[in-house]
């Protein structure tokens, strides 16, 4: 049971919910996803929502592609584009080979990929992930981190629970802990695990001296190594987004090199700009 919960999720924000087993994290996520209603208090706002449960049982009489197509139309996509998007997302998570396999014959990891694809491919405004990474293979985990970064970049609110403290470490805008039946915002004195995920170094030069604002926001470190030449350090899960921002900028930037960062321990984290996350309230949960 949870009481006195007040939580606002802003568009484009990434929120992590922590807490011991059985503390009510999943209950909170079900409330946020609109699956359950609170006994007292209110949940306001009804964005287009997608939910990935902790375990996704495969006991459904469809093929993976058939199920995803149905879910796509439930999410509001036209049938033809739902089928195309379902195919593309299964491919992205390395499950294209199972598209025509009955769900009952999928392994635990493969059905989790279906659950994840179901939530992502309708481009929801609110994405709720209840240990969605559990059971996925390494590539699919990294792909899901990238997909989460894309969703927040597109302005969706993402809220997640995961037992691995390194999951999206340093990327979450806010971390809450569910403890003693209440929700506590984690503040600075309790250091989140250092953002020790893999990083990439991207070297670029361009016609103008100033980097696009979006690039500066995503980069962990941006240093000008020569005139109009910059070296950008970025979390690996955000590197695709940063490259896209560079290449679609006007005038476009020339990417001279992309390589993994081997000396990441020495990099300070101050340059990460978090001022862009306080936007309109999309929903808030009243006092319980």
């Amino acid at each position: 049971m949870l009481r006195n919960v007040h939580l606002e999720l802003a568009p484009g924000s990434l929120t992590r919910i922590d807490g011991p087993n059985g503390s009510g994290k999943s209950t909170l996520l079900r409330l946020l996803a609109g699956i359950d209603a609170p006994t007292e208090g209110t949940v306001t706002g009804r964005p287009r929502t997608a939910y990935v449960p902790e375990r996704f049982p495969a006991a459904l009489p469809f093929t993976a592609l058939g199920y995803l197509t149905h879910l796509g139309t439930v999410h509001g996509l036209p049938r033809a584009s739902a089928e195309r998007a379902a195919d593309a997302w299964l491919d992205r998570f390395g499950a294209a080979a199972y598209a025509r396999t009955p769900m009952t014959r999928l392994s635990k990891g493969s059905s989790q990929k279906v659950a994840v694809a179901q939530a992502l491919f309708a481009e929801p405004e609110l994405l709720v992930l209840d240990e969605a990474w559990t059971g996925l293979d390494t590539q699919a985990r990294a792909e899901l981190e990238r997909a989460v970064a894309e969703r927040t970049a597109a302005g969706s609110a993402v809220v997640f629970v995961d037992h691995d403290p390194r999951r999206l470490a340093g990327v979450a805008d806010t971390v809450y802990t569910v403890r003693d039946g209440g929700l506590h915002r984690r503040t600075g004195e309790e250091p989140t695990v250092a953002p020790d995920g893999p990083r990439m170094i991207i070297e670029v030069h361009g016609a103008t001296a100033a980097l696009p604002a979006e690039v500066l926001r995503r980069a962990v470190v941006a240093e000008e190594t020569a005139e109009r030449t910059h070296r950008l350090t970025v979390r690996a899960s955000h590197s695709d987004l940063l490259l896209r921002a560079l290449l679609t900028a006007r005038p476009p930037w020339h990417v001279a090199g992309v390589r993994p960062d081997e000396s990441r321990d020495a990099i300070p984290d101050e340059s990460r700009d978090t001022s862009s996350v306080s936007r309109d309230v999309s929903r808030d949960e009243g006092h319980g």
Binding site: R30, A33, G34, I35, D36, R46, R48, T49, A50, Y51, V52, P53, E54, R55, F56, P57, A59, L60, L71, V74, H75, A115, Q118, A119, A122, V128
Partner: peptide
Amino acid sequence: NEPPAARAVVAAAAGP
């Protein structure tokens, strides 16, 4: 007809 998790997925998308 649906396992509870599948029902939750649809409920989040369309309202329970």
